[in-house]
Every structure is written in structure tokens, then in C-alpha cells.
């Protein structure tokens, strides 16, 4: 039986997330958002049905940069490094920056690099501030699968990259876009999604399966390399807790089509 919700905690989170005025999204990353056509695809994480339907939505073609996140914390002081409650971000939060509102000199803090060391709470609040939201796991997988799923040769290239990433961050949008016009989905920087812990035990889907050694095979639709590749990103993402961040964990925002009127324009 699930315990009662800690009402105080829920109120606190709601308070932080609410009150953010619907953004002038055009100024906050939404202007470049790409219209993603709806469709169905076969998820690798089969909890109920493998076929998943994704409604049309809008997605930022690039990850949020240090410069963009700086604008957010300048506008929203409660998300500055010195002021954010520890419940919503650990001590690693924005630790590569010089100061609260100063990117500083560390290479990883360059303005056009993807922002990292951000918690799920901070990422979700940024997207709310930008008039949107984080993409869902299914939305992310649907887009990331374009040009990869079903092609084991491409998947093998991705696996090879994981084993030899010659690791360093690079400015967003430099890698070739995928067929939907989205960059960097399979690069060094992972991305928070709204429901990133969806199949972990105790989440609202109630699945008893985590992504441990023996459990993953049960969740896979197929046994192809490209299925395994898709699973890999889920596995990586699901092992974080919402307040943590690392130097290779960032995010991008999504928008519902209905919210497009507040800013995003389509280019597809």
C-alpha cells in the first residue's frame, strides 16, 4: 500500500513551479521550436502495449545553453546557485559556473555549450518559465528513434561511440540534425525528460520492474541492436534522482501545440 502523500512537500513544489508567468516563449528558446508530427512507434520499454501514440508537439532543436539558463536565473532568483533549496538541487548544481549570475572561465561554462549540472526540478522550472515543459520519455524516444531504430548498422556506430567518446562538450547544434531537425540527441550530454523514472518501482505506473540486469530483457520489444541502443539512454537517465545533476546531464524543452500561440513558430 502506498503511503499518504507528504502534502507539505507537494505544496512546496507546486509553489515553486507555479507563479511563473507564461513566458514570452519567443525570447526563451521557443522561437526555434520544431513541429514534431504525431505518430505511433514501438517503444523499447514495453509496460503495457509496445505501440505508443505520440500527439503532435513542438520540440527545441537544441539543448538549453549556459547563456539561456543564465537568463533564467537572472529572471528567477530562487534558482540561483546560492539560493536554491537543497531539496531541489544538490551541491553540484551549476558548480561549473563562476558565480550565481556569472558563467566564469571554466570551459564547460562557455555560453554556447549545453548547460549541465542542473537538477530535474531546475530543468522543469526552466521549461515552465519558457512557456513549455520537458518532453516526455515517449516523445523523446520517438524523436530520437528517427533515423536510428531499425538500422542496426547505425546503432552499432552509436555503441562504438559510447565506448570511445573522446569526451568533451561541444556547442549545441553542431552535430547533424536527425530527420526531424533535432540535434544532439545521442551526444555526450544526456537530457532530463518529464517522466524519466517511469518504469522504476514505485512510480505512478506501478511497474515492479527496474532496469536491472535481469529485468531489462522483459521490457524490450525486440532484440535488435537498435532496440538495445534506445534502451541504453533510458537506463542512463533513469539512474538519476531529481535533485542531482552531473557535468553531462542537461535538457531541452517541449511545447504543446496549443501553447504554440505564445511564441514558438514552426519551421517544418
Amino acid at each position: 500500500m502506498r503511503p499518504a502523500l507528504p502534502i507539505a512537500l507537494a505544496s512546496l513544489i507546486a509553489g515553486l513551479l507555479a507563479g511563473l508567468a507564461p513566458a514570452a516563449a519567443a525570447e526563451r528558446g521557443g522561437s526555434q521550436a520544431v513541429a514534431i508530427p504525431g505518430g505511433t512507434f514501438e517503444t523499447v520499454l514495453v509496460i503495457d502495449e509496445p505501440q505508443v501514440e505520440v500527439e503532435p508537439f513542438l520540440l527545441a532543436p537544441t539543448q538549453v545553453t549556459n547563456a539561456e539558463f543564465l537568463a533564467f536565473v537572472e529572471d528567477q532568483p530562487q534558482w540561483r546557485r546560492s539560493r536554491v533549496p537543497s531539496l531541489f538541487a544538490t551541491t553540484t548544481y551549476l558548480r561549473h559556473w563562476g558565480d550565481d549570475t556569472d558563467l566564469g572561465d571554466v570551459p564547460a561554462a562557455a555560453p554556447d555549450l549545453p548547460v549541465t549540472n542542473v537538477s530535474w526540478f531546475a530543468a522543469a522550472s526552466y521549461c515552465t518559465w519558457a512557456g513549455g515543459r520537458l518532453p516526455t520519455e515517449h516523445e523523446w524516444e520517438y524523436v530520437a528513434a528517427q533515423g536510428v531504430r531499425g538500422d542496426d548498422a547505425v546503432a552499432a556506430q552509436h555503441f562504438a561511440w559510447y565506448s570511445n567518446p573522446h569526451a568533451s562538450l561541444r556547442p549545441v547544434g553542431q552535430a547533424p540534425a536527425n530527420p526531424f531537425g533535432i540535434h544532439d540527441l545521442h551526444g555526450m550530454v544526456l537530457e532530463w525528460v518529464e517522466d524519466y523514472q517511469r518504469v522504476l518501482p514505485g512510480t505512478d505506473d506501478g511497474s515492479p520492474f527496474g532496469l536491472a540486469c535481469g529485468a531489462a530483457a522483459r521490457l524490450l520489444a525486440g532484440n535488435t541492436l537498435s532496440d538495445q541502443l534506445s534502451l541504453m539512454r533510458h537506463v542512463v537517465r533513469m539512474n538519476f534522482s531529481a535533485a542531482t545533476g552531473t557535468g553531462t546531464l542537461g535538457f531541452r524543452c517541449a511545447w504543446d501545440v496549443a501553447d504554440a500561440r505564445v511564441g514558438p513558430t514552426t519551421r517544418r
Binding site: 502523500l5 507537494a10 518529464e194 517511469r198 505512478d204 505506473d205
Partner: peptide
């Protein structure tokens, strides 16, 4: 959807 995601996190905690 946002409320659902937040709820899931609280439950996980």
C-alpha cells in the same frame, strides 16, 4: 502531465 510527473517523483521519494 506535469502534475503527474511531480506526483511520481514524490511517490518515488
Amino acid at each position: 502531465r506535469h502534475a503527474r510527473g511531480t506526483l511520481a517523483l514524490i511517490l518515488a521519494f
